[in-house]
Design a protein around this nucleic acid. Structure first.
Lengths: 351, 351
DNA sequence: TCATTCTGTGCAATCGTTTGCACAATGATC
DNA sequence: GATCATTGTGCAAACGATTGCACAGAATGA
């Protein structure tokens, strides 16, 4: 058993060399190192090395009021959409010596509020939010408190805030146009929660894209969900099928909803893509391996994370840097869940 | 534009009430609150509330030398095995007001070392490592520095260290016994890296289980990989097939390797499970949706995370709490990738 | 040679809390 | 009514770093 090993402080290094702690501090800070005689610099550096000195970030943080850490809030790390984003964030932060502190909110406003409070208590220098609602008071609070914030994946109506999102309108347009190219005209949409920018934008884009393709978007074929989950996708698609309305394809607002649609189609004794083509959104890991492999819209998740982190770092350097919404380009990935339309009378036949 | 809004300190609260800062501190700390007159307690509390006082964790951390945060090191958050574990860790930590600081190491010793150093500089109170190697000098360092550490998922040979792992031997035994029950006798094993406890234990367990089932484990049918990845699974299975040896089933050391085996089987013009049955390990999210749905060993990932966090919290309270290895029970999940043996001459036929 | 500018280092205050100790005020005891 | 615990609060020193300011001593110029 060893003793708790006394921490070596800047003072220990100073004593060891025979200089004042402030001198050591200046040597250790690259920005002020130039002000110290190189002979002393060398001595201090080697003493620090010898004693295995590690700066105490807590003390630094207290004095400088900067923690070099940022809070990253996501709905649920268990949702495969987020890990790549987080990884991108972390990698970009690490390059500048910053650390990410993670928080899951489960899309609950209350937990979101808690999480932000926790982060702020921990003196994070800024926040990256993947949790923003369209009109989010929490985001507004941060802005008015001048806490640097960048939104990722979702955007918000709160003005003056930077965001890094995917071009959802383009993605949906790609999906619709792909389906039309396969001969589909009666296309249903499983929409995500309308309180989330992604859900709302994609739904709106669906109508737009249908119109642009000269197709009729029937309101009865657009069903809204309460969450981006497999269960809700199952529910929505079952409803769609049960309604007896005619459709040969489903554009789902994300991959999870699409997987739910798979189940509903299966439950109804139908086949995908034989009876119903399905498109997803996000190209989550492993959706290329499900049966059938999912045709979906790939969004650059890792890059989104990186970009968001870079924007935040920039904001930390230059607090008045103007807000900017970055949108990244998605890509249609055609796989096995979509096929040329065969039987347009699906729904009628079933009745 | 608002001004940066001056921070409310304990001193502001004290002045507002007309007491000394130390009194406020005592009121705010539930443990010492009892020492203060209840009338003052009330006044302080309402003043704190009114002024929206938030304790500065950094200052607290400096003074108390406890950050109420713990470092969580994992190989790669993008690997579906880890999110549930992380979630479990976070949830358990949050219950006690602790925060998790995440780090990805990509299984690189150097990054691992860096990450630990970063964590320690940030004054984490303890570490949860999902990255441990069998004989890990980093882990040993932590132990000798008396930094509380708990290993999760993997264990280590370093003595005196707590770990929460799955009962891998039992899991492999379940897989082998399941396959034997389906008539398989020539069973191959795609082993994970032998420097990782999971890879090594599962391999050893494979031999043990085969022996117990009175089956012959041929060394030529056990191939080792350099990483737990789809690519390595593909490589290993291709090698196995190319060798011309007879086998009708593969026990893969984890799901990713199993998915790689799927590809190899497909590439060789064979079918799973028709020609080769495959079992995975971990029951990662969505492997129930791949084609064919993977028969695998489910390990209680979320619970593993929770349990590891709880152990660590206990260790923080009672530093001399004796080390203990907790093993959780896995469960065989039978799905579509395993079936009764049909053609025992697979390999021979192919030559 | 002396006044003046530079340069490099030391001094001490500060960041926001916590906590051992001192010490008034109160109540109990004889 | 003096003595002694007891209780509640204040005081001040930490924790480990950073940084504005002061000030020696060297370098420069007249």
């Amino acid at each position: 058993m060893q003793s708790p090993r006394p921490r070596v402080t800047i003072r220990d290094v100073a004593d060891h060399v025979g200089v004042h702690p402030s001198t050591v501090s200046r040597v250790l800070n690259p920005a002020t190192r130039g002000r110290i005689t190189s002979k002393i610099v060398k001595k201090v550096l080697s003493a620090a090395d010898e004693l295995d000195y590690r700066p105490n970030k807590t003390a630094q943080g207290l004095r400088t009021n900067r923690s070099r850490s940022v809070g990253v809030l996501i709905p649920d790390i268990t949702n495969p959409l987020f890990p790549p984003i987080i990884r991108g964030v972390e990698d970009a932060l690490a390059e500048e010596g910053y650390t990410a502190v993670l928080g899951n909110t489960d899309n609950l406003a209350e937990r979101e509020r808690d999480a932000v409070a926790t982060m702020r208590a921990r003196q994070v220098d800024g926040l990256i939010l993947a949790t923003a609602r369209k009109d989010d008071p929490i985001v507004a609070d941060c802005v008015s408190d001048r806490l640097p914030v960048v939104l990722v994946n979702r955007s918000s109506d709160v003005p003056g805030i930077s965001s890094v999102v995917n071009d959802d309108a383009l993605g949906i347009a790609q999906a619709v146009s792909h389906l039309k190219g396969l001969g589909h005209s009666r296309i249903a949409h499983i929409a995500g929660p309308q309180a989330l920018s992604t859900g709302e934008v994609r739904r709106r884009s669906f109508y737009d894209a249908m119109a642009r393709e000269d197709l009729i978007a029937e309101d009865d074929l657009v069903v809204e969900t309460r969450a981006f989950s497999v269960d809700e996708g199952l529910r929505a698609a079952s409803e769609l099928i049960a309604s007896g309305r005619i459709f040969t394809a489903i554009v789902a607002s994300n991959d999870l909803l699409a997987l739910g649609a798979y189940e509903a189609i299966d439950d109804a004794g139908l086949a995908c893509p034989g009876d119903v083509s399905v498109t997803g959104f996000n190209d989550m890991p492993f959706v290329d391996r499900v049966a059938p492999p999912l045709t979906t819209i790939r969004i650059p998740q890792y890059e989104m994370g990186r970009e968001a982190a870079r924007r935040l770092l920039q904001l930390l350097e230059t607090p008045d840097f103007p807000a900017h919404a970055t949108t990244l380009q998605p890509e249609l990935i055609v796989r096995g869940s979509t096929t040329r339309v065969r039987n347009v009378n699906l729904a009628i036949n079933r009745n």
